[in-house]
Design a protein around this nucleic acid. Sequence first.
DNA 1: ATATTGTTGGAAATGATTTTCAATAATATT
DNA 2: AATATTATTGAAAATCATTTCCAACAATAT
Lengths: 173, 173
Amino acid sequence: MTREAYYGIILLKLKIIFNKKEPFVPFGPRWLEARFRGCGFRWTFPRQVILDVLTKEKKHLSAEDIFLKVHKRYPGIGLTTVYRTLELLFNMGLVRKYEFGDGRARFELSQGPGIEHHHHLICRKCGKIIDYKDFVEDEQKLIKDLEERLSKKHNFKIETHQIHFYGLCSNCS
Amino acid sequence: MTREAYYGIILLKLKIIFNKKEPFVPFGPRWLEARFRGCGFRWTFPRQVILDVLTKEKKHLSAEDIFLKVHKRYPGIGLTTVYRTLELLFNMGLVRKYEFGDGRARFELSQGPGIEHHHHLICRKCGKIIDYKDFVEDEQKLIKDLEERLSKKHNFKIETHQIHFYGLCSNCS
DNA sequence: ATATTGTTGGAAATGATTTTCAATAATATT
DNA sequence: AATATTATTGAAAATCATTTCCAACAATAT
């Protein structure tokens, strides 16, 4: 099967599922498996390991970071599979993808027990990334307001947002 | 001169100048030239043309976009020079660099007459980018507040921020 | 137990960006 | 104004993250 057909089917599957219902599954012990099967995808070992890494290491990992961690446990796994799985998870709405400016994308699980909405501080000198989840209430209020107004004005359906702060971390300033 | 030494010198120059004074020059007719010379850089023709393009086309251009426009007027110019100039301008604080997730960086002049602080809406389907500069006052207040608190808490010196909204544009939803 | 077909790994390809290096052009010096 | 100095440039090659191709494989359906 060509790549185009393969991903065409994936997107189609997701579209159908998402139109039928919110693919929400309670965060029980096997909710990820349920989510995969619910969307018609296979619950394979590589996917399990990648998701386990994402679940345990919550913070902005690059594809290579994930590959290295996964590789330790399951040396047979390929970098390609990591990229493919991340793309699938992104399309499923399970991971967020960030580009902070150093040329490599970062990924984070966006749903699950203990996952909180947050944004990032990025040091322009050493590249260190710090999460912050403070003052979310204030932000949420502004953003919600903003989203409503922007949606109307530009006829744009906003789904997510990212806020990046750039500057110098304690070591570099 | 090796690349490392060359850029070492550039960064050193910038550091010295920026420590001595705010490299601000009133936005007169030749303020860009003054800014360049003031930092010890040469005011070359390629740089002039690139800056002219950035000044006229204000919106989130990729390096290739800029190259193509510049190339029309001065076919001798190389893509390498465009990348190099953009890096220099970024280090001088004259351009902002964005990565919206499609694998290519976007650049915008960040200072000059008529340049306004703004953020972006990005369509996840067609990649269209819309600027918005509405409601900046509300945002500024929150952001300023946030910056102060984050600076203290994480001992992080915030210099800039970016807000990206992702969703579906009017054509794609 | 077997057939079906979605998924995988590795190698090769891609595309944006960076590096190298000799030639050139902007500025400083005479 | 002529020459010396050195920052800057362009083209080709290199690099690096990510994607594609394709034959082998493994998860699920029959």
